[in-house]
Design a protein around this nucleic acid. Structure first.
Lengths: 208, 208, 208, 208
DNA sequence: ATCTAACCGAGACGGTACGTCAGGTCTTTCA
DNA sequence: TGAAAGACCTGACGTACCGTCTCGGTTAGAT
């Protein structure tokens, strides 16, 4: 997670319970205070932990919040709902359900904003949050190809471009709907969105 | 902009030059320092203005940055490029060109993040940034309907839903591509995106 | 008072009422806020006068408060009570009565403190507050000499020294009692004080 | 001194050197700037200490200056000079020597002025400055009674009144001479003052 | 069975920025 | 042209957090 495994074998081991408590406290503080008013001292107090313990494990607020928020996305799954459309609708609804939770709302955009000036942070976000979502896109496409709903991709390079495009379109639309427009990504919206997306994708695939 | 027009006739009037200098200084500081290290004291110094003058006009960092960033979007236009696809590609490229500028990158996501806990701020963003973009979507659709590329919408309520959807898809995809994925929304990507989007929209319109 | 009579005959004349209002407002603010929390802006507001008007007439807080407090000492008198002891007791009681008023308490010591680093201010205090008190000492001694209670002073230089001494002893004791010890200079204390002082003075005069 | 002895045994202990440095820096700043231009930020800088450290230990400027000035009076002693007159002259000269020092001059009157509106401050002054002086008066009287220069006091209540009176007369006269009249309390003045005071006291004692 | 290294809590440390406020000055409009 | 209104700059205020440090003490694994 955050530890770079300092390869120390001797000495007292770090308390595993502390990690859990700190991340939970971070989410709790995000809900109550939001990103900008969240302070590491407060998180430490909530977690019943000294501030030094916290700094020993995370470099700062950004890294801590990334880890705390990342755990929220662990619950994303892609159960087989029988069709590509149903699969997409299912995962988008799951994704939207996470985004409306205040601990995600407050923290996610903020760390993304910070990551525009901090490459290490961006990489951390990519690895612990974005990567997981990207896997779902790949998995969904593979499943659709098995079903015959999508043709097998001819060119691996173009394939990667398409996956990137789909990912940005899906994630971007849900995030924008939820956090910028401030409206719920409810079942109706998700249905409309999925229809447009799928028609576009199949149409583009037919053209090629 | 920020003034609530106190309608005072007497007394020394506010310096109009100060507003311009402050907003420019804010953008300059955003470029150099980014959102989180930007301080109002520093902005005041850069603008050659007292900190109190700044606080007299803006409630805080958030409001100031919204106004500073909003000015960047004033340059968004929708010249008639002859077809809906060309119009969309044009405006998306403009939008992406703004988003890669560091003053936008640093500030925009941050204020959006803050707005998740501050309704007044969200409304300010909507009025001064989002609204402008939404107008372009409406204008582009009207133009496409005149050209016969899109059918006139039958139901005004569904029409509004569609516009919202398009807007979230366009803005969301570009923002996600640029700020989350951290890749350029270049001509090739925009072409791919536009093709998928238009096929989806026309397909959905045909179904209905 | 504070004006250096710039001998300007033209223009709108200064409002005489303003001076009165400002000094009264200053005393009022001294009572409510004390020296350190008194602000010129607040005084101006209370007096119904613009801050600029105030600065046109006084150089700053110190000068203003000196004038405001000085007016309190205008009421000091030395009615003939028939004996030196009674005269002293009378004037000391008057002096103490002024010192317990909050507008004097708060302001007097503060401007004296400031005057330790500002000779112009010390001179202003001397001229408008101390001088008046010193006159009473001189007047009282003259009256006592007429009555035969004190011998005429032989040496003018020694005479001045004695007056200074008496003045410091009287004023100092009352001020210390009231403002440092924080106890009332009531009739009993004044009687005790006067007895010691007079016995000392007459004893010293007899020795010489 | 300023600490309320929170009796916390854990955590990093407070730096004892900081206290010394801060109080010395305060006196230095008093000499250079005087009370009104002294700022806590400047004191912190001079002491090589953070402003927060300063605020952690003292509630504000007043409390800090009281402690800084109080240390000046630690050097007051009452060596046995053989007679009451000599004892008084000695201590008064010591007292005057402290009062002419600019760090005392600037600070003492100012905190007394502030104390007229702040009972906690008055008590702090009493405990750390006035009390010490009062002890000298008591000690001097006891010594004089041993020598037979003063009669033993018959009534404890009247005794306390007399001590208070003497204290206000001595301290008040010296302070007034030095800070209000702005003249030196030199050997000659002290001799004159002591003669008058002693004649008054012995005369009053004889009467009783 | 005791080292001993790394952990833990508490909290003081030097700093930076905050948002407010007062001191003075300057620039309007009004009377 | 003075007075009122109020915006302006300067700079101190007291607070909150930052990230680091120094404590006294605890908890394992290694000797």
């Amino acid at each position: 997670m955050q530890s770079r495994t300092p390869a120390s074998r001797t000495g007292r081991p770090r308390s595993a319970a502390a990690d859990t408590a700190i991340l939970a406290a971070t989410r709790e503080a995000l809900v109550e205070l939001g990103w900008s008013k969240l302070t590491l001292g407060d998180v430490a107090t909530r977690a019943g932990v000294a501030k030094t313990t916290l700094y020993r494990r995370w470099a700062g607020k950004n890294e801590l919040v990334v880890d705390a928020v990342a755990e929220l996305f662990d619950e994303l799954e892609l159960p087989d709902r029988g069709s590509l459309a149903a699969d997409i609708e299912g995962v988008v609804l799951q994704f939207a359900a996470i985004l409306v939770r205040p601990e995600a709302k407050s923290g996610l955009m903020a760390v993304v904003a910070e990551s525009t000036r901090d490459d290490a942070l961006r990489e951390r976000i990519r690895a612990s949050i974005v990567e997981r979502q990207m896997c779902l896109v790949l998995e969904g496409r593979a499943r659709a190809q098995l079903r015959g709903e999508l043709p097998p991709e001819p060119d691996p390079e173009e394939s990667a471009r398409t996956v990137d495009l789909i990912f940005d379109m899906v994630a971007g639309a849900v995030v924008h709907r939820t956090l910028v427009s401030g409206k719920a990504a409810d079942a109706e919206w998700v249905r409309d969105f999925t229809r447009v997306l799928l028609l576009g994708l199949t149409g583009a695939a037919r053209e090629a």
